[in-house]
């Protein structure tokens, strides 16, 4: 089994993508052997009516893929009554998790509202994904410049919420060099591989982070789905490590979080 923890439905605002139609993306995922994909919506980046974004996401995941797609709704804690969006994700749509876009929604992880959101989501037994970026900041549209999320406050925040499970997506540029070190002991913060780079990049990441914290993720369809697949191949990982990254780590998160 392979779980892709980082796919996104609907339209990327700045370019048409070959797999932006859900059935096409589902077919590509199946061809790659993916058996579960955690899906958010590009609409969540800029839309303010997050309630309808999440409703469409849940519906799209139900109509396509026969259970392949697991919806991860969005919550923007800078919107009024965001707690209701979270409640709907948990209770109405019974989502396993949510995906946050702090840089697009204008808050830092040091903001107390993030801690409150993480605490509430954890109370609903939901995993919380944080998209550090969606695209390379160097190539962003000049009118939509979005910085990387600063992850420095995250280990301490997660430490204060014992049952929290956090998945960090598209993070590579934000944690260069020693910046990754504080996360090696943060056992409930996981990292996807969509933006991990370098020769044998995943194998080298597994020397810096416990393999139990690394998740397969593609950032498809914005990224070519084959990128993450081929990076796993280039890295020459042991079978046991591959299994952790492809499946076991992710299923451990949903097992803990789903009711």
């Amino acid at each position: 089994m392979i779980t892709d923890t980082n796919v996104t439905l609907s339209r990327w605002p700045f370019r048409r993508l070959d797999a932006e139609e859900t059935p096409v993306l589902v077919a590509q995922l199946r061809q790659a052997g993916v058996t579960q994909a955690w899906a958010s919506s590009f609409d969540a980046l800029l839309h303010r009516d997050i309630g309808s974004v999440n409703a469409r996401l849940a519906d799209e995941c139900r109509r396509h893929g026969s259970g392949l797609l697991l919806p991860f709704g969005a919550v923007n804690p800078k919107l009024p009554d965001w707690q209701e969006d979270l409640r709907r994700c948990a209770e109405d749509f019974r989502m396993a998790g949510i995906r946050l876009y702090p840089n697009y929604h204008g808050y830092a992880l040091a903001d107390p509202v993030f801690t409150e959101l993480l605490r509430l989501a954890t109370g609903y037994r939901m995993a919380v994904q944080i998209a550090v970026s969606v695209e390379d900041v160097r190539t962003q549209h000049p009118l939509v410049r979005v910085p990387l999320v600063d992850l420095a406050p995250l280990p301490e925040t997660v430490e204060r919420i014992p049952e929290a499970r956090v998945v960090v997506l598209n993070w590579w540029s934000a944690l260069r060099g020693d910046k990754l070190r504080p996360f090696a002991n943060a056992t409930r913060i996981y990292f996807d591989i969509a933006t991990v780079e370098g020769v044998e990049g995943i194998a080298r990441l597994a020397e810096r982070l416990p393999p139990g914290l690394i998740l397969f993720g593609t950032n498809a369809p914005l990224f070519s789905l084959q990128s993450a697949v081929l990076k796993m191949q280039e890295s020459g990982l042991a079978e046991a490590t591959k299994r952790l990254i492809f499946e076991t780590n992710a299923s451990g998160i949903t097992r803990r979080t789903q009711p």
């Binding site: 780079e197 370098g198 020769v199 044998e200 990049g201 990224f223 070519s224 789905l225 084959q226 990128s227 697949v229 081929l230 990076k231 191949q233 280039e234």
Partner: peptide, 11 residues
């Protein structure tokens, strides 16, 4: 990586 860049063509 070789992989991420080759994927742009192969995919």
């Amino acid at each position: 990586s070789f992989a991420s860049q080759a994927a742009k063509v192969l995919g």
